[in-house]
Design a protein around this nucleic acid. Structure first.
Lengths: 265, 265
DNA sequence: CGATAATGTCTCTTACAAGAGACGCATGTA
DNA sequence: TACATGCGTCTCTTGTAAGAGACATTATCG
């Protein structure tokens, strides 16, 4: 990228590929700050923040001050660390209030996990990434839990296969990167196989995967439709990999029923 | 550079007094957009949004597109309206997870309203304004309910009196505007009386107000401390104004106990 | 049907925000 | 005591984003 016909390529390159250093827009910096805080999941010093984003220190100070004044961020505990602020919480609650699917989905997930004792989750597509929007831990002694907001490559999950059902092949190819196809343990999923899985999941109306994200769990998922054919979200259950065929079948049936109930909207 | 006087006068004016029209920073525009959506509580057209903020249309389109791409906003339903997006929900949940007081406070409020049957709320100071952070409606046939995120002038509420306890007189004067002292029904509260109320609330450790926001309700509040003397939040109960002295007393006692439990942190 | 309005996109200019870097101040540590 | 490191603030320059406004489309209406 640096050599020879660098300039033209440089200009041709879409903005998001450009290294973050050169005179970036304030709003973008802010978006990166928020993402960074979301990734770290805890308060962080401003200097550290600037370093983490490799953004200029002076700019970072300015932006953080503005965001703190606005209430989107808050200075935490000891006084020189920042994290999300109350405003974001309030906006988030407003989003939830205005979003039937999310509100009802959360409830369904909670009751489902209470009834089955298994970890249950509500998942959605979030700008091309699989996102756990709400999760309710099961009752098992060793909990299989994953944090809300966690983002995982689509091919690693059962929900991922359902969320992409109904999309054009080209769109799927655009969304899935090479890295996404490599599992945590190093195995690689073939794009062809993945696309075939999606088609299968689409017709069967559910999806089960075993030992993908880790070696100990099975993932059962069912689609939630916002319109005929349009998968808006998935409900899923995460169970031990040695769960019997029979119980798995029962759980899938239950899951599909609940997901269907959400779909009516 | 320019001819002296006009320029310096212009620069002397503090930024926030300058008319909102002239070349405002993108980030500020964004903050206003978020506030506006929070106020309207529903999806809104982009044109309407620009008008509401009297911001230039072209800029508004650009910013909204960026925010939608980032997931902070989402295009709603029919396709030319925007509202809060999933990202804000996720950030909000992250805030809640990282904030013990809020998490525990929500629970206490929920159980308190279940136990008493009355509407219960958790309130905090949010950039100089009283904010309902979480509320749980009571069981009464005609519910006294108010939305999360609602902001009300401090002098209108019992919680307001507690939240300002321990602040310097000058700080209080800075926070409270003339308009804040005028109740919805037109009556005016004297600043002196209000400051006295604050002092009283501080020593007694609770506060009760009657018929301030409306003529039908009483508001009982107790402080939650984050450090000795520092009021971080309040829990409050909203009850019918004709609630007996006796029951009011019982409720206040219960409220104080629960608020104290939160304070330990 | 023309007329009015509202939506979304594009171009071009210039006012101004992003950034480099210096400074002062507090800590830590050799 | 000197030296290094991190924090927070400030100033000045220049690249660029905010904004005006034209344009092409698509409703809405009498």
């Amino acid at each position: 990228m640096q050599d020879g016909k660098a300039l033209s390529e440089w200009q041709a390159a879409s903005p998001e590929e450009r290294p973050g250093s050169s005179r970036e827009k304030g709003l973008n910096r802010v978006l990166h700050i928020l993402e960074f805080l979301h990734a770290t999941q805890r308060a962080i010093g401003i200097g550290e923040l600037a370093k983490g984003l490799n953004a200029p220190r002076s700019t970072t100070y300015t932006l953080v001050r503005e965001l703190v004044d606005a209430g989107l961020l808050e200075m935490a505990g000891d006084g020189n660390r920042v994290y999300f602020g109350k405003k974001l919480y309030l906006y988030g609650m407003a989003y939830m209030r205005g979003n039937d699917l999310l509100r009802r989905g959360r409830q369904e997930v909670d009751t489902l996990s209470r009834e089955t004792g298994e970890t249950s989750e509500l998942c959605m597509l979030q700008s091309g990434r699989y996102t756990i929007v709400h999760s309710s831990p099961g009752m098992r002694p060793f909990r299989i839990s994953s944090a809300t907001g966690l983002q995982i490559p689509l091919p690693w999950t059962a929900s991922g296969r359902l969320l992409l059902a109904g999309l054009q092949r080209s769109r799927i190819e655009a969304i899935i990167s090479e890295d996404d196809l490599v599992l945590p343990d190093g195995r690689k999923i073939e794009l062809e196989d993945f696309i075939e899985d999606i088609a299968k999941a689409r017709v069967s109306g559910y999806c089960v995967t075993s030992g993908l994200v880790d070696a100990y769990t099975k993932c059962l998922a069912a689609p939630v439709f916002s319109a005929p054919g349009k998968v808006e979200a998935t409900m899923c259950l995460v169970v031990p990999i040695d769960t019997s065929e029979e119980r798995t079948g029962e759980l899938v049936a239950l899951l599909r029923e609940r997901a269907a109930r959400l779909s009516i909207s």
